[in-house]
Amino acid sequence: MQRVNMIMAESPGLITICLLGYLLSAECTVFLDHENANKILNRPKRYNSGKLEEFVQGNLERECMEEKCSFEEAREVFENTERTTEFWKQYVDGDQCESNPCLNGGSCKDDINSYECWCPFGFEGKNCELDVTCNIKNGRCEQFCKNSADNKVVCSCTEGYRLAENQKSCEPAVPFPCGRVSVSQTSKLTRAETVFPDVDYVNSTEAETILDNITQSTQSFNDFTRVVGGEDAKPGQFPWQVVLNGKVDAFCGGSIVNEKWIVTAAHCVETGVKITVVAGEHNIEETEHTEQKRNVIRIIPHHNYNAAINKYNHDIALLELDEPLVLNSYVTPICIADKEYTNIFLKFGSGYVSGWGRVFHKGRSALVLQYLRVPLVDRATCLRSTKFTIYNNMFCAGFHEGGRDSCQGDSGGPHVTEVEGTSFLTGIISWGEECAMKGKYGIYTKVSRYVNWIKEKTKLT
């Protein structure tokens, strides 16, 4: 034993070699072989497995989906700052455009905790909710729209109204504003409101030439003092309507412009014939205590009207009353817009006519005020429907199939267009061939041609 100890002390290297040989010859039971080890760690190889990531292109799944990435790591994937920024906006807080917040056709661009709407022409605001041009839906104005110097929408209202708090709607500024039905039992019968379409306001006024200088022999019209197929109006439903009495009662109609003036057809009036105007009328054979009678003290036909040349060209006249009318729910003026808007309103496509005229061709006159909704007829169809001249200051309205029309005794009465609950004068009943005849239409004086003249002559002093 002493000898062994001496050998170990003198030859430590020998001992180490012996131990190493023993270990190498022993069977290893701690580690699995290569094949079995792979069965336990069965993990798919990654895209760049075996390579240094710093030297390969980034992978979106590896960089940002398996674990949260930084902007720089995302930049490695896209290799483009702009594309990385677009991805980053949604990656950080989701897609803010998912709810489609942009209105009126706006395009949404996502941002971090926010979004941006790219608005089409005519709109602005956070969600493109603000109209900035009158060309689109009248700028959301209830009545009139004008573009300011910086191309912003400025709404306005006709006389007797003021802008509401929203700067879009119009509200009454006087007790009985024009064009409004205020009798409670008839307010439910107000005709369907007309909503502004998209309009090209630059070209809204037709490029028409008034044929002022045409000389033409007097034409022989049949029954051209021209509501057939209409309905009984309720008291106060058309408070701007008046009836004219002269040699015979209810020979023509008219509309209240203001307390002192009536507008009617020029062919209705004769110099030297006494005319009485009755406002607030409903049943011409009954006294309903809503009527107001006034005498006409002055007749002003349009300066281009000449019955000797043509009885229905420039067929418009103004009547001055001896005493002002007292405005109330049964006696209310009709609204008159400017030339541009009167023309736009007419193009809405349908209007209402009213009167006490004959209820059928050569038949009896109506006792109760009649009204009828009539569609506008395109000019080409209008011209083809008659052998008589249709001037540019006239328009056609009615039904091709016949059966409904204005008729004798309705002449001078109103053709009105309702705009968001307020009625505007767009025409004056003038003439036609018979009444409600198939293929024939009622012919009306186009008020847009005469609004400046009306307003100039009827100013209240």
Rank of each mutant, 00 (worst) to 15 (best):
E98Y: 10
F144W: 02
S350Q: 13
Q241S: 05
G413Q: 07
D131C: 06
I256Y: 00
G398D: 03
A366T: 15
G351I: 01
H302T: 02
K260F: 08
Q96Y: 10
F87G: 15
D410G: 06
S114E: 11
E73R: 06
P12Q: 09
E61I: 07
G413M: 14
A164T: 09
V195L: 13
T218R: 10
H289R: 06
G229A: 13
E231Q: 10
D131N: 05
K459L: 09
H415A: 02
K126H: 09
T461C: 09
K260P: 00
W240T: 00
F399R: 04
N393T: 13
A37Q: 15
V278E: 03
G402L: 12
L318F: 00
C252G: 01
V153K: 10
L130F: 10
V202C: 05
N42S: 10
E171V: 09
W431N: 12
P101E: 02
G50F: 09
S182A: 11
L19K: 02
S99T: 11
C252Y: 02
F424L: 01
Y391T: 12
F87W: 11
K362D: 13
R43I: 09
V248A: 07
L346E: 04
C134V: 03
Y91L: 11
K440D: 15
K51L: 07
S187A: 12
G272D: 09
I299M: 10
L20K: 02
S25C: 14
E401S: 11
L327F: 11
T218L: 11
P12N: 11
A26G: 12
H361C: 04
P301G: 04
E35P: 12
R162P: 01
F221S: 14
L23Y: 08
N36Q: 11
F424A: 02
G272Q: 07
R180Y: 06
G179D: 01
E456Y: 09
S350A: 11
A250G: 14
E433W: 05
Y47K: 04
G105D: 04
A149C: 05
H282R: 08
H282I: 08
D378T: 05
P44D: 14
N310T: 07
Y391N: 15
T190G: 12
W431E: 08
M437V: 14
T85L: 08
I390V: 14
D315R: 01
L130E: 12
F71E: 15
D150M: 11
K362A: 12
Y305Q: 02
P172S: 09
G442R: 09
I136K: 09
G363R: 06
Q167M: 13
E86K: 15
N258K: 02
N203P: 09
L325P: 00
E231H: 13
F176N: 07
I344P: 02
W240H: 02
V228K: 09
E231K: 09
N48H: 11
Y371M: 13
N127F: 06
C435P: 03
R404N: 06
T218G: 09
I112C: 03
K89A: 10
Q408D: 13
K339I: 07
A279V: 04
N48M: 12
S107G: 04
D95R: 14
F395C: 02
W356G: 03
K446N: 10
V242T: 03
I429M: 14
N104A: 03
V181H: 10
E171M: 10
D223G: 09
E66C: 03
K455Y: 04
E54A: 09
A9T: 12
L376Q: 06
R180G: 03
